[in-house]
Amino acid sequence: MRKLTIISLFFALISSFTIAAEVNIFSARHYDSDVQLYEKFTAATGIKVNVVSGKDKALQKRITEEGADCVGDLYITADAGRLGAFAAKGMMQNAGWSKAIRDAVPSQFRSKKWTGIAKRARIIYYSPERVSANELNGMTYEGLADPKWKGRLVIRKSNNIYNQSLVASLVKNNGKAKTAEWSKAVVANMARTPKGNDRAQIMAVAAGEADIAVANTYYHALMLSGKKGAEQQEAAKKVMPFFPNQQDRGTHINISGAGMLKHAPNKANAVKLVEFLLSEEAQNHIVNNTFEYPMISGVIPNDLVPGKEMNFVMDTKTSVKSYGAKQADALEVMLAAGWQ
């Protein structure tokens, strides 16, 4: 056993000193399919990808305190608000995105410091048995406050980042006071005290506990894929997707993205990795594993994802940067409304 300890100690030591072409990632978006992508990248370029995954704020704290000693190149996370907020703290640098990246990613989904890699939509799921087409006609996020949904709506807790970004976009568009009233009305409409993740909301509609749910698109696709078992696959078929706000600003869109860290030691490699992640090959891999929407045009979303023709109106007017700026306001109005 002692020998073993010494040997592993030795390996741990040398592995931290090997110098090779590499890129270091702090990732709060930890899909195992991402790891497969990194392996493909290494095979193609010889650049090794090192990863520490964890919770957003914990990673941010580590990066901040490490300061100039931080060897991280990229910070990857699944919320635009978090990217924007971290950049605003001065923890990122101008990445010098290549022309390929600038051409591939629409300008509202990137800044000089960070760029989106994939898109996700937060939409409404409904029971076609209990909700008529007429009822949903022209439905908006604002419409969730309509008293006709009393006792029929499920949505997760206020501490959830997806809800916070959605409500932040409402604060941005309608103002804090109006959103506060909206929150109160939404709470009054809830079929139950918020609990569970997005998938649990969809299942509550399938099980008849509620008529409409708010959830991210890839959760439903995950259920339809059969990865959660045959029963949930069946349950998923009992609910239908609805894209809100099609007549005005469009459906709430968030991104998964990567930002260039302030002290990145392998900046050129990091840009190469992002270029790779935005390549057709990688985008196809992402849409078929995480069920997100592609960031680049020309790649078709997975069959199980609603709106795969991308013919729905996306909210491109509300800058994703505002999700971070209005996050605290969003939580404040939700808490004040008694949103658990």
Partner: peptide
């Protein structure tokens, strides 16, 4: 989760990552 070196996973962190 917060203090581990790059590419260092344990049973606990792997379980957490999948669960999350």
């Amino acid at each position: 989760l917060i203090l581990r070196p790059f590419n260092y996973e344990t049973f606990a962190t792997t379980a957490y990552i999948f669960a999350s």
